[in-house]
Design a binder for these strands. Structure first.
Lengths: 348, 348
DNA sequence: CCTCGTTATGAGAGCGCTCTCACAGAATAC
DNA sequence: GTATTCTGTGAGAGCGCTCTCATAACGAGG
């Protein structure tokens, strides 16, 4: 048996009023007599009538739905931002459709097309890039449709004219380096992704800038790259691990899952943290307190990113004033734990 | 500037054909001449026309959208199932709207109302209960609307007539107990939630059934309950910890976050795992290999639950045969790691 | 010749709503 | 008295599609 929604006409007929008057009751506008309102509300209640959101969207041109395109909901960064966004928008009567791109430009584009078909009122996107660091075609499309959009995490260049909420990634890398330098480390590996993600690249730049201030040259062979296929997924093992850890005394991992790769590979090669190698990660992971080693990390305010993005997006959608084009860069902090060790006391 | 979607009429006008012929082209049905098709497709491409999903839903009565109501997307169980569901349905042209109930019947009901307003084609729900173990009003509503629904994780009773995908929770608890008994433990605490969630209760029942087979009586004071406010959220600290661990030699935590509570509280009281207390948890957590202690756990096939639920739901929505009312119970396995210790070798 | 079936197209109804407009009766103003 | 406002209601257009039905042109079969 197919579902049968009763319509406003049914309510009108059963209550003895016109469709227009019923609409006035459910929409709370215009003049309606006390008598009519009571009668109509009784019928609505009796037949458990819910107005069709689809028909309303048809008329209003608004769906009260927001799309979210991100890497993978299983990633902690993604689900924390998703929850934060949802919390904000639900309070305004909006819902969230979540799409996972898995760092694939093709799937990202497909997601956008689906969301465009669904006629979402706005979009939050953490965009991915191709191997040349170029963003996908979604931004042309977004522009063409003039679809309210906020970009999170990975900052797209200002020329796209799309607001961005991100963190000071350069500062994050810089602080990680400064900290390791202060512990006496100078041979430091960077575990990162081959995919030229702008946020991750900024972390690296910040990191190397700090090293260069100390006269340490940036060496390409000290960058350990994780293939793009794995960069978007949870660390699952099976990859061919890096083995040349002996050259280094410390490691900086530029994102949460890369810390896991680093730890896994080090363990496999028999290096222990922080005895043989110090490790600084990026992003707090859940249940950190029971991790071993307890990772020293650069922390970004993940939930805050989602909240701000949601607020900016609602603002844009509901057109409350020309707040216009913004780029918000939130500060990062460092959480010092036990995965890092001073070389000075041990070796010098 | 507001977005302006161009409509099928615009395409019709620009191509010199009627709305009906354009509809034939985009819908790939009926007779269309080669000439007309080429002309219309060219115009569609040129103006980057996408048919309105809202209008289509208006006509077809289908939105190609599925709702998911669950506890909290940040919870690993939830985001793994969400991803699995999304992967399945996207392949069939469906999207997922995710709602978080946070174990609140009120929010659960609000979520359903929102989804009903959005006219989702189907629903996957991991339902919550009140303090009396009663399910919320959502199932009456679902029934009334005859909305295709699959229940996951928490099995609702057969009388509701709603298909269920869950795991053999009783067996999970039973195996956990058997294992601890085999290590010589007999004074075992159960860390669980005060909220009478049916899946969790079944784990407890299985656990106590095994104990009773050995003549060990179920003792109410050996159940350590976590207040419902915290049960739905990630373990965040701040709660008043249980302290009477001294009476026990082992602990069974009935869900992933409860393991965290247990570990945190034990640590706070100076007990170490598995030296002072053995711990068996439920559900693998991410990054387990770097946890300390490495938890021995009962493992449920989380992604499989989502996949099966999605497949059953699509089946119901698209009405492919009267597969009808199913209850799928997947098996659980045990992963033995280092949070458990035999009493026999140590104590006698 | 007329009658088919096939191909190609358009007119128009209808999905369930919102909202403008018209209108009618009551109350108020002059 | 008439003019004006306020209050309450309904008719109907229109949102962008899909799909049925009507129509017309054409070749084939009788």
């Amino acid at each position: 048996m197919a579902r049968k929604h009763i319509s406003i006409d049914t309510i009108a007929r059963l209550s003895g009023y016109s469709r227009a008057t019923v609409s006035r009751v459910i929409g709370s506008y215009g003049y309606v007599s006390e008598k009519a309102r009571n009668r109509i509300e009784a019928v609505i209640k009796k037949y458990n009538y819910h107005p069709s959101g689809v028909a309303r969207s048809m008329v209003s041109g608004k769906t009260h739905t927001i799309g979210l395109i991100q890497t993978d909901i299983r990633n902690a960064f993604c689900n924390i931002t998703a929850k934060a966004i949802e919390d904000v928008i639900v309070g305004h009567g909006y819902n969230l459709i979540i799409c996972n791109s898995g760092e694939s430009l093709k799937k990202e584009r497909q997601s956008l097309d689906l969301l465009l078909g669904k006629q979402v009122d706005g979009l939050v996107v953490s965009p991915t890039v191709d191997m040349d660091g170029k963003f996908g075609s979604i931004f042309d499309e977004i522009r063409r449709y003039n679809l309210p959009t906020v970009c999170i995490d990975r900052p797209i260049p200002p020329r796209f004219g799309i607001p961005v909420v991100t963190v000071d990634n350069h500062q994050g890398g810089y602080r990680a380096a400064k900290y390791l330098l202060s512990l006496g480390h100078s041979r430091i590996a960077v575990v990162t992704t081959r995919l030229p993600l702008p946020n991750v690249r900024e972390r690296e730049n910040g990191f190397y800038d700090a090293l260069e201030e100390q006269g340490i040259r940036r060496m390409e062979e000290d960058r350990i790259e994780i293939p793009p296929i794995q960069s978007g997924r949870e660390a699952e093992g099976g990859e061919t691990p890096f083995e040349g850890w002996g050259r280094f005394t410390a490691v900086f991992a530029t994102a949460n899952i890369f810390s896991i790769y680093a730890m896994r590979w080090m363990k496999k090669c028999g290096y222990s943290i922080p005895k043989d190698l110090s490790l600084v990660g990026f992003d707090d992971l859940l249940y950190w307190e029971f991790m071993s080693p307890q990772l020293t990390v650069i922390v970004q305010p993940i939930a805050r990113i989602g909240e701000l993005a949601a607020e900016m997006l609602l603002h844009a959608i509901e057109g409350r004033g020309p707040k216009g084009f913004e780029r918000i860069v939130l500060p990062v902090t460092m959480e010092e734990r036990s995965s890092t060790k001073s070389l000075c006391t041990a070796d010098g």
